[in-house]
């Protein structure tokens, strides 16, 4: 059980690092979506189902869509 928690936290760290160090903003937004999904699974493993449902609905659904709409109106590649 503790091993499962450590593995899940490792995937969380990898996706967060990928979101920071890439230059393409669309890849970064997808990595943030994966981050929200893993955090929702982590909340469920810690016996908190209310917060898990809320995080899955808002973080992995609506927040990603709002970021993509914002990128459409500005530019897609981060400048140097």
């Amino acid at each position: 059980m503790v091993i499962l928690l450590y593995l899940v936290v490792l995937v969380l760290a990898i996706s967060a690092l990928c979101a920071i160090f890439t230059k393409d903003l669309l890849v970064s937004v997808v990595a943030l979506g994966v981050n929200s999904l893993i955090v929702s699974a982590l909340f469920f493993l810690m016996h908190a189902p209310d917060v898990a449902i809320t995080e899955a609905a808002i973080g992995a659904g609506l927040s990603t869509a709002i970021y993509v709409f914002a990128i459409r109106h500005t530019k897609r590649q981060e400048e140097k």
Partner: peptide, 25 residues
């Protein structure tokens, strides 16, 4: 369903509203 059964099952008002907004999206 999520926000009507807020006092019986996990969930409540806030995830229910977020799911409705996902439907409109």
């Amino acid at each position: 369903y999520i926000f009507i059964h807020g006092h019986l099952t996990p969930g409540g008002g806030f995830p229910g509203g977020a799911v409705i907004a996902s439907g409109f999206l």
